[in-house]
């Protein structure tokens, strides 16, 4: 009956990793390029659909089992067995899923740039929000994708062959965190590169940038492609983590959580995003009745609703105390500026 800290660690690390990627992608799109992509959950879901559908189909093919309904729980069992016996296959499928999803996400990001370049801020946000819901309603009705309302189960953890499922989960969460951190480093590089400065300059004054001879629509579009591609990668990581892909999980609230992370942490600052994602993750995981019990606190009533209220209050409070977010936007960092700072 003792406390078992392992599932909590896996839970926090994986959730943080996945949402960090989403938050970073929103930060690139909104913070640096000024495009509020409120269709975040749509691109996230694309990754999950691609990973689920592709992996499940390939595993079924590899199993040689025919005549089993793709969506059935029996098929899910078959897929787990194949993954158990063929480590290289499931790892290959995982890596391929990441690549394919990133590509597909990028394509959808490119398509999104069409409305994005025509609409201004708040309109774009709502139109993309609508995009996300259209995607969800379509996926829940179109069964071949991820089994519609039933959801597709049997997308095995890529490390399932380790044998000990608890270790497999832990190792997988480490992979998620590593990928998320890699994404962070890449994002940092990107936004401190000439490209990042260009994004910021367009965000702050598009006219000036275009006068300087930059093709601003193309640059803005490219930010959406990068962001969507990242969100799709997060979707793949999510699918292999939950091992079930259900269209109805991809509701607008996911986007709101991501937006809140970025706004709380500080716009156009990746360190802020790290912090904002951490605050929201811990808010979600450490205010639960289960965690309070670990601390020895026993509550006499159901705290689920209270948790949501406290989350809401925290959002309001942080925005009031730190209107710029927890960490505000830093000036540009270039080798030249660094040298200059050293001199002075």
């Amino acid at each position: 009956m003792g406390v078992d800290i392992l599932p909590l660690v896996t839970s926090i690390v994986t959730f943080y990793g996945i949402y960090l990627i989403l938050a970073l992608s929103f930060n690139i799109e909104y913070g640096f390029a000024g495009q509020p992509n409120f269709g975040k959950v749509f691109f996230y879901s694309i990754g999950a659909y691609v990973a689920g559908n592709f992996t499940a189909n390939m595993l079924m093919r590899a199993s040689g089992v025919t005549g089993v309904d793709f969506c059935s729980d029996l098929a899910a069992e078959v897929r787990f067995k194949v993954a158990m016996s063929k480590p290289w296959l499931i790892i290959a499928l995982f890596l391929l899923s990441l690549l394919i999803a990133a590509a597909v996400g990028g394509v959808f990001g490119y398509l999104t740039s069409y409305p994005a370049l025509r609409l201004s801020g708040d309109f774009l946000a709502i139109v993309l929000l609508a995009f996300g819901e259209i995607g969800r309603v379509f996926a829940r009705n179109y069964t071949p994708l991820v089994c519609g309302v039933y959801g597709l189960s049997g997308v095995p953890n890529p490390l399932v062959w380790i044998g000990d499922p608890r270790m497999a989960r832990l190792a997988y969460s480490a992979i998620v965190l590593a990928i998320a951190f890699g994404m962070y480093l890449l994002t940092e590089r990107l936004v401190n590169s000439p490209y990042g400065r260009l994004l910021k300059s367009i965000r702050d004054d598009e006219l000036v940038s275009s006068v300087m001879g930059k093709v601003t629509p193309r640059v803005k579009g490219s930010a959406l492609i990068i962001g969507s591609s990242m969100a799709a990668v997060a979707g793949v990581l999510y699918a292999f983590y939950v091992q079930t892909v259900v269209a109805d999980d991809f509701i607008p609230i996911v986007t709101f959580v991501v937006v809140t992370m970025v706004m709380l942490g500080g716009v156009a600052n990746n360190k802020g995003t790290l912090l904002g994602a951490m605050v929201m993750t811990l808010m979600d995981r450490l205010t639960r009745a289960s965690f309070l019990r670990i601390l020895g606190i026993s509550v006499g009533f159901d705290i689920s609703y209270v948790r949501y209220i406290v989350t809401g209050l925290l959002i309001i409070l942080i925005l009031m105390v730190k209107p710029e977010g927890l960490i505000s936007e830093k000036p540009l960092k270039t080798p030249a500026i660094e040298e200059a700072e050293k001199l002075s």
């Binding site: 599932p7 839970s11 939950v242 892909v245 999980d249 995981r285 289960s290 965690f291 019990r293 670990i294």
Partner: peptide
């Protein structure tokens, strides 16, 4: 949701 259910179970397991 699937995600909510997993998170709930993880928290309970930890306790």
């Amino acid at each position: 949701t699937a995600e909510g259910a997993i998170a709930a179970l993880e928290a309970l397991a930890a306790a």
